[in-house]
Design a binder for these strands. Structure first.
Length: 810
RNA sequence: GCCGUCGUGGCGGAAUUGGCAGACGCGCUGGACUCAAAAUCCAGUGGUGCUCAAACACCGUGUGGGUUCGACUCCCUCCGACGGCACCA
């Protein structure tokens, strides 16, 4: 197909120009307002760039180019989140060193990203696998360790037989399969692990969500993940004297507790079970331990459990209630034990019905509906000292009473767990710790960082819990930095999240070898003003980053409590068949093909024209062609077939000036608010309008090039040059809309009778309300509809409409 | 089950504070140019009725109701889609 304009010449030309002139190098400029615009950096996979990547990148690029032209000092960097399993798996399969695979993939990604003409400052590129980068990832880990926020523990962790590796909780799917490869044999086994004490920051991670401008859905997901709930811990005494502590959010229902439940793993089960029940309880616990999470949560809707033979005393009424063991109570939450109030808890009610346990109503709903199974707020009944109180007051009073008697206290619980931070993999940052028999875990001295990954000949997992690094025996064997005695290096590595937790800070000062970032630079650029990326990172990446950032903040290394001020999630791009793009469906669109055939500007512009940035939307090659045709039409507005400029110096008509200034106004507003699709629609209106006119006045066409520049930067640069300018337009002043041309002299007024449009009047824009009313009533069309009616009410909105409310007479 | 987001032509989508629903693009139809086609340009394009057309009327933003002079927009009910969480006491 013949090209509609020479994008294949223009685009490489300007890309070369920008790189050679370092047009987009970011500088701290005290006189200018700063703007830090960040893309979630990609994992450079072997498959190359996907059309989803450039969606967010184009959005941020447009915004950055727009803001530069509006006088901002803009920081807009790109880099690589390059540790991770695929390169390691490839090494296992082929023997190629992951570093080499990574280098190659990065080269492909860089080429593809550069061919789209994004205005990144390439001198700030970071690569998480580069020792000069991970040196500081390790350094931050040591700060966490020294602050007591990194510790080792023997924890039951998810082990995937297929990957021969430990998985993090979040890497295990709800159906019990492995998130990476879909392996089925995933189960828990206890292993020594590194954990980060993110729970110490639960409250601040929750509260500080109020400081950021993020989509409500993301904030809500983080809140749910942190899972704060207020309640009370209450001590029940078993008959043998053991104290069973429970957590409840409804201390007001204590009088309705008719039994207790311990989690199967609860340590008191052993000590409380009576001889008669021991066999049944042991059998139940053994069965529960074997159950996968899948069985325990998904399939097992029917409650199970066993009475352990023991009783406890309800502290509020001294009632004797039986103790059961059941797997609907989890050891990992609260205290692993509950008081069961079947009348006001759905799960307890199910259990009680199945095992014929008593149900006692202690909360009366306000609307007098059935109290059994009622879990909302109401009025306490049959509840001693709190009888008659509404739920919130009842909670307060009973909690105070418990505290006074030493039987319990108000408590806050979180669902959030500590972050399992070690991986039994090769291709990750080595954890800079030496294990010494004398001194325990000892940090590698900071001046010895980076602790480099040793080369291995064989990357395959050991198959045991020993990580592959254990094979590098010379590397593992070392001396203790503290006492000089024999030591062993930690062989676990960090998870992929580690490098991405702080990369936005390294961009500020990527070549600094004395600190992870220079404090002055940090203060100048932070926080990130706009962060764009996929919603799949809603919880983990963003929560982990926020956690590290807060630790660095507390240690005085960064100046803001939150890293990312504003967050926008770009939507997914589906295939033309409205399905998720995938190789197996054969609906994958390759950016290389698109750029070869239509050019980068058309690709960028189409992705922005598809719809709102946040929306999920299907790819359409015809839609792409429509945008490509538009760019061709735009080109022909300026040049004839030989590429000779046809712009003239004729005085522009008022009509053209009006559409120009409307376009300036609309494009300015919509670019600022990231509504790129409507900004492009307005540019199309402009081009359509100019096309209908014979003249090509420079006074109108030249400012339009600047409006186009953030969207189709190569085309705009080329036209700018043809118009006689030298150098790049990247820092030209953004056009200002002249209000004179936005004001309309006359407006069209809608005249309604009973809410239906019956006539339209063209009147002077500043016509008064009374005058407007007169003219509306004088309209023959309107009079026709008013015949035989009496006007009851007149609504006059100057500049907009007149509505006459009339009723039929007689 | 719970939380969140969202339902607008044949399709992607627009609509400022409650004020002409369907901007812009795709597709489709007709026309110009052409030997012909492609490309390009011009015109039309929510549905229904009125024997065609014009004019006009009525219907129309997932469903049913409500508030209002007026509802895509605000409130309630239900239905559907997508995303997240999931026995969290």
């Amino acid at each position: 197909m013949r090209k509609k304009y020479p994008f294949d010449v223009i685009e490489p030309k300007w890309q070369r120009y920008w790189l050679e002139h370092k047009t987009f190098a970011a500088r701290e400029e005290p006189g200018k307002p700063k703007l830090y615009v960040l893309d979630m950096f990609p994992y450079p996979s072997g498959a190359g760039l996907h059309v989803g990547h450039p969606e967010g990148y184009t959005a941020t690029d447009i915004y950055c180019r727009f803001k530069r032209m509006n006088g901002y000092a803009v920081l807009h960097p790109m880099g690589w989140d390059a540790f991770g399993l695929p390169a390691e798996q490839y090494a296992i399969d082929t023997g190629t060193h992951p570093a080499e695979t990574t280098r190659k993939n990065i080269a492909t990604f860089r080429r593809q990203i550069q061919m789209l003409g994004f205005s990144y400052d390439w001198d700030r590129e970071v690569d998480t696998t580069d020792p000069s980068y991970y040196r500081w990832t390790q350094w931050i880990f040591l700060q966490l360790f020294k602050a007591g926020l990194a510790y080792q523990a023997e924890v039951p962790v998810w082990w995937c037989d297929g990957c021969k590796a430990v998985l993090a909780n979040e890497e295990v799917n709800a159906d019990g399969t492995c998130d990476r490869k879909g392996h089925k044999d995933v189960y828990r086994r206890p292993l020594r692990q590194w954990l980060l004490r993110i729970t110490a920051y639960a409250e601040r991670l929750l509260k500080d969500l109020d400081l950021v401008n993020w989509p409500e859905s993301i904030k809500e997901q983080q809140r749910n993940w942190i899972g704060r709930s207020e309640g009370a811990e209450v001590d029940f005494r078993a008959e043998n004297g053991e104290v069973i502590r429970v957590f409840t959010t409804r201390p007001d229902t204590l009088f309705g507790a008719t039994y207790m439940v311990l989690a199967p793993e609860h340590p008191l089960v052993d000590r409380l079970t009576t001889a008669a029940q021991r066999a049944a309880v042991e059998a139940y616990r053994a069965a529960a331990a074997k159950k996968s999470e899948l069985e325990r949560t998904q399939l097992e809707k029917e409650k199970t459990g066993v009475f352990i033979g023991a009783y406890a005393t309800n502290p509020v009424n001294n009632e004797r209630i039986p103790i059961w063991v059941a797997d609907y109570v989890m050891m990992g939450y609260g205290t692993g034990a509950i008081m069961a109030v079947p009348a006001h808890d759905t799960r307890d009610l199910e259990f009680a019905r199945k095992f014929n346990l008593p149900v006692r109503v202690v909360v009366q709903p306000i609307d007098n509906s059935d109290p059994v199974g009622f879990t909302g707020d109401g009025i306490s009944v049959n509840s001693g000292l709190i009888t008659g109180l509404p739920t919130p007051e009842a909670k307060k009073k009973i909690t105070a009473w418990l505290e006074e008697k030493g039987l319990g206290k108000a408590t806050v619980n979180y669902k959030l767990r500590d972050w399992l931070f070690s991986r039994q993999r090769y291709w990750g940052e080595p954890i800079p710790i030496v294990h010494c028999v004398q001194c325990g875990p000892v940090p590698v001295p900071e001046d010895q960082l980076p602790l480099r990954l040793p080369d291995l000949a064989d990357y395959t997992p050991t198959g045991t819990a020993e990580p592959p690094l254990a094979k590098a025996t010379d590397w593992v064997r070392t001396s203790c930095p503290k006492c000089g005695g024999p030591g062993q290096r930690e062989t676990n590595t960090m998870p992929q999240w580690a490098g991405s937790c702080w990369y936005y800070l390294r961009y500020l000062d990527p070549h600094n070898d004395r600190a992870f970032v220079d404090p002055a630079k940090e203060r100048y650029w932070m926080p990130v003003d706009l962060y764009v990326g996929g919603a799949e990172h809603a919880v983990l990446h963003l929560l982990y980053s926020r956690f590290w950032h807060k630790v660095l903040y507390d240690l005085g290394h960064v100046s803001t409590p939150e890293p990312f001020l504003r967050l926008v999630n770009q939507g997914m791009i589906l295939g033309e068949d409205n399905q998720k793009m995938s190789k197996s469906r054969g609906n994958v669109i390759n950016p290389d093909d698109v750029v070869r055939e239509y050019g980068a500007d058309a690709f960028r512009m189409y992705e922005m024209f598809m719809g709102p940035l946040e929306a999920t939307k299907p790819w359409s090659t015809q839609g792409l062609e429509g945008v490509y045709r538009f760019l061709g039409r735009l080109w022909r507005l300026y040049c004839d077939e030989d590429g000779t400029l046809v712009v003239d110096d004729s005085p522009p008509t008022p009509q053209l000036l009006r559409v120009l200034h409307q376009t300036i106004q609309k494009v300015t507003e919509d670019t600022e608010s990231l509504n790129f699709n409507t900004a492009i629609a307005q540019m199309m209106i402009f081009v359509n309008e100019v096309t209908t006119q014979p003249a090509r006045p420079r006074a109108v066409l030249e400012p339009f090039v600047l409006l186009l520049a953030p969207y189709a930067p190569h085309l705009a640069e080329e036209l700018w040059e043809k118009l006689g300018h030298t150098g790049s337009l990247a820092y030209e002043r953004w056009p200002q809309a002249d209000p004179q041309w936005l004001r309309a002299d006359t407006v069209e007024i809608v005249v309604q009778v009973n809410g239906r449009v019956r006539d339209k009047l063209t009147v002077p824009a500043d016509l008064s309300a009374t005058e407007l009313e007169q003219r509306a009533l004088a309209s023959p069309r309107v009079q026709e509809f008013l015949r035989g009616c009496r006007v009851q009410k007149k609504i006059v909105v100057p500049g907009k409409l007149v509505n006459l409310v009339a009723t039929r007479e007689g």
